[in-house]
Design a protein around this nucleic acid. Sequence first.
DNA 1: GGAGGACGATAACAATTGTTAATTAATCTA
DNA 2: TAGATTAATTAACAATTGTTATCGTCCTCC
Lengths: 172, 172
Amino acid sequence: MAEWQKFSHLFKREEIPAKTRLLHEGEIARKVYFIEKGCCRLSFNNDGKDITFQFFFEGEGVSSAESFRYDKPSLYSIESLEASVVHSLTKADYLTIVESSPLIKQDIEEQTFRRLAYVEKLFLSRIKNSPEERYKELLQQYPRILQRVPQHYIASFLGITSVSLSRIRNRR
Amino acid sequence: MAEWQKFSHLFKREEIPAKTRLLHEGEIARKVYFIEKGCCRLSFNNDGKDITFQFFFEGEGVSSAESFRYDKPSLYSIESLEASVVHSLTKADYLTIVESSPLIKQDIEEQTFRRLAYVEKLFLSRIKNSPEERYKELLQQYPRILQRVPQHYIASFLGITSVSLSRIRNRR
DNA sequence: GGAGGACGATAACAATTGTTAATTAATCTA
DNA sequence: TAGATTAATTAACAATTGTTATCGTCCTCC
């Protein structure tokens, strides 16, 4: 949205190497990030196993929303998958922007709502489909993810082991 | 929130028999409901199988948020599990309220955000845990659900068949 | 009160995934 | 580029869940 341009001076451009955590699980999110180039994943640790549950790419905003908003420990980490360029915004600056622009306040509310709808869909997809079906869905709808993201992260995202994904891919 | 009292005349009290759909999958949600007494489930049809993915009880508001907001076909149904008493609000009245009360607008934004956080947690729980673990989690955290809701809905909610849930319950 | 349907338990078998381990392929990085 | 690390494939076996079917019980509704 154009309105955001007015506040571009509050953003900080950051160059992030691959496999770098922008936020660690358990920490409080102090910033939100907008991805100019590269991609990230959200993940958490489950009994020693690292589980990926979402990916973000160019043009998308990433944060640990609940942590950022309520200053609670984040349930998950944010990590770059590739060398990336992001623009970060601190909470103080974020609040300044929200308070000075009703348009942006409205935009954020809208984005929150859309994100809710997205997470609901992601949730329903996981309920509805088998791992194999989810893989095919991913293949159809988001082939770019499969091309860019290492397979074991995909497996984790699909809720299976990399061994099982390998089997599914090589069936038939 | 007290502010809501001012608009109580816009709500319509409805008595709903058990197993009655307040909204059918594919329809556009024209109302939101607040449960005074009873409970509901959200469900959808998957290749002929009826799948339950959420429950609502007294004091909670239910709707198909995306459908209600954007006038899109709902991805799921809302159905009473028991004979219930709900208070419904049409979209027109909803919009009237939101526009006439900044406090309520703020409250709804907050609720949307909390719901996002809740759905994210629900999603993470489903990723993290096995069906057996999810059953035990439910047993610990929401025993009231197990007491009130027939077992096959629980099974569906846990992502397994009622046969498998029966097995899990009778293990050891 | 009786009939029909819904609900839950159980059994047998099939299908899928997890686990572990060994091998090959790909990719850092010094 | 060579060596080392990480990633992906494959195989064998175990564990879990799904599927189908049967049975008994309870509830609901004429």
